[in-house]
């Protein structure tokens, strides 16, 4: 056991556990996009940033990969952390405005503007696996570590890095189990409310009581989300498209609420 101070509270933690695990155990909320229990921590999304140390020597580290040390002082929600998180979320919204999970996090962590151009230029454009991928690596890891398949992986690097099947063909190891779709934080639920004027949805904030607070864990898993239902300009089109896909006998993500 090691003794650390978390948000001013003296707590005990097991040796070798990560800051994220400790914070979750003591119920300090830390948002993540690339962390899943049962998979190796990856540290790709950086949303789990926390501040360690004190004064001018304090620094931001990714909680999912940082092990606890004796006497450590951790702040999970300092001003610095909040600022960094907001900036990250702003970038994520610009990368993938269709992701409901990202929109929910943006609402929850106080992102009220998005100053960046969306990646594909069109917030209402159909979801593009290459452009809208946030490269969290969840699909790659769940395939390799839980499904023991390793059928997909990253390819290329820098700007052209993307998740791909080797040689563009379905690998022999792929059992079409759908775990990659299940794990993906951006393709599961779609937010319909982001528009060209504002990439942000922030719809949950218009409800009273505020939506994401009353449904804490489940966030606003009202299916479909009221905001999407009411203001979704693309909702109609998506519906038609999905029926067309069904008719063509194509598989649709099982977890995609509206697409069932």
């Amino acid at each position: 056991m090691v003794h650390i101070t978390m948000n001013g509270l003296a707590v005990e933690a097991e040796c070798g556990s990560s800051l994220l695990e400790v914070a979750r155990f003591y119920n300090f909320p830390i948002p993540t996009l690339c962390h899943e229990d049962g998979l190796n921590s990856y540290g790709a999304c950086r949303l789990c940033l926390v501040e360690i140390g004190e004064g001018p020597k304090s620094k931001l580290v990714a909680a999912c990969g940082y092990r606890v040390e004796e006497g450590m002082k951790v702040r999970t929600n300092s001003m610095r952390v909040q600022r960094a998180r907001r900036l990250l979320l702003e970038l994520y919204v610009a990368t993938c405005p269709q992701s409901k999970r990202i929109q929910d996090l943006a609402s929850e962590y106080g992102v009220r503007q998005c100053r960046y151009q969306p990646v594909d230029g069109q917030p209402g454009a159909p979801w593009d696996p290459k452009a809208n991928c946030i490269q969290c690596g969840l699909c790659v890891r769940i395939c390799a570590e839980q499904m023991m398949a390793g059928a997909i992986g990253f390819s290329g690097r820098g700007k052209s890095r993307h998740v791909a099947r080797p040689f563009g063909m379905t690998s022999e190891q792929c059992r079409q189990c759908g775990a990659c779709l299940y794990a993906c934080p951006v393709c599961e639920l779609r937010c319909q409310a982001s528009t060209a004027e504002s990439l942000l949805c922030n719809g949950c904030l218009n409800f009273s009581p505020v939506c994401f607070q009353s449904y804490s864990d489940a966030m606003c898993f009202l299916e479909p989300c009221h905001t999407c239902e009411l203001s979704g300009p693309f909702r109609h089109e998506v519906g038609i498209k999905v029926h067309a896909l069904h008719d063509a006998g194509q598989k649709v993500a099982p977890s995609t609420g509206e697409l069932k």
Binding site: G150, I152, G153, P166
Partner: peptide
């Protein structure tokens, strides 16, 4: 060549994806 990469993967007992990842990086 693609076939060579597949052979490498078989020899080293790693998924083809890993070899492909390195080859494209």
């Amino acid at each position: 060549p693609e076939e060579a990469l597949r052979r490498v993967a078989r020899k080293l007992h790693v998924p083809v994806t890993d070899v492909y990842q390195v080859a494209t990086f």
